[in-house]
Amino acid sequence: MKEDQIRKAVARRDHEAMEWVMNQYAGLLWKIVYSILHNASSEEIEECVADTFFAFWQNPLSFQPERSSLKNYLATIAKHKAIADIQYFLKYKLVYPGEKARRFSKEPRTSYLDSKYTFSNVRNTSHLIPKIILDKRGR
């Protein structure tokens, strides 16, 4: 299928077209998300990949085939969603010194948000962010 045909089919809510996209790009997106969320569980990585496909399903016409390939478009969405997950983790799941990094979870742990662990302590956790995030070009 050509990418413009895929885009139009998904815009018409063609489930077969979306299934084709998912079968075609799930492995690639999994690798991209895993490279960023390497401490996350497989369920959390799978959720990020599913969120990527859902974003495309919700707004397929934002993909412009003349500007980029579908592969690059989905990879960019996956990268940004994974980075958002890390930012959420750093915001709500601060790690006590010497403690292993906790899994990602959508529920904030208020015990980690006490007065001892404020925004200034987030700067001390920059070693948890993979280098790919620190590079502005994402390469």
Rank of each mutant, 00 (worst) to 15 (best):
M22H: 04
S105G: 14
K8T: 06
E66P: 01
Q87I: 10
Y117P: 00
F119R: 08
P130I: 11
A82G: 02
N124G: 14
A17W: 07
P65K: 08
Y88F: 15
E66C: 06
V95W: 00
K71N: 10
V49G: 00
L74G: 03
S62M: 03
L37N: 05
S111Y: 12
L134H: 15
L28S: 05
V10D: 06
V21M: 01
R13G: 00
T118M: 02
T110R: 08
I6G: 07
R123I: 12
I86V: 15
K136P: 09
L128H: 07
S111K: 12
Y25T: 01
V10N: 06
R123H: 09
W57S: 08
M1K: 11
Y25H: 07
I45G: 03
Y88W: 15
A40G: 00
V95M: 14
A17E: 11
N39M: 09
N124L: 15
F54T: 11
Y96A: 15
K93D: 13
K8G: 01
L74T: 04
Y88E: 10
L29Y: 10
P108D: 15
V10R: 06
R102H: 06
D14L: 05
M1E: 13
D85Y: 04
T110A: 09
N39D: 14
K100G: 07
S120H: 06
V21L: 02
G27R: 07
L29A: 09
Q58W: 03
R102K: 13
H15E: 14
S126A: 11
P60T: 08
F89V: 06
L70Q: 06
F54H: 08
L134M: 14
K71A: 12
F63P: 05
V10F: 05
P130Y: 12
P108K: 12
A84G: 11
E3M: 10
N39W: 14
A78Q: 06
T76S: 06
C48K: 04
R12I: 01
L28M: 08
K71D: 14
T118R: 02
R109H: 13
R109A: 13
P65F: 08
E3Y: 10
K131T: 13
E46W: 03
H127F: 10
E43D: 15
A9Y: 04
P60K: 05
F56G: 05
F89R: 07
R109F: 09
A26G: 00
Q5G: 04
V33L: 00
L113A: 10
G27C: 04
V21A: 01
D14H: 04
K100P: 10
S120K: 09
A55Q: 12
T125S: 13
F53L: 04
E46I: 03
H38M: 04
I45A: 03
I129W: 03
I133K: 04
A50R: 02
K100R: 15
I132Q: 07
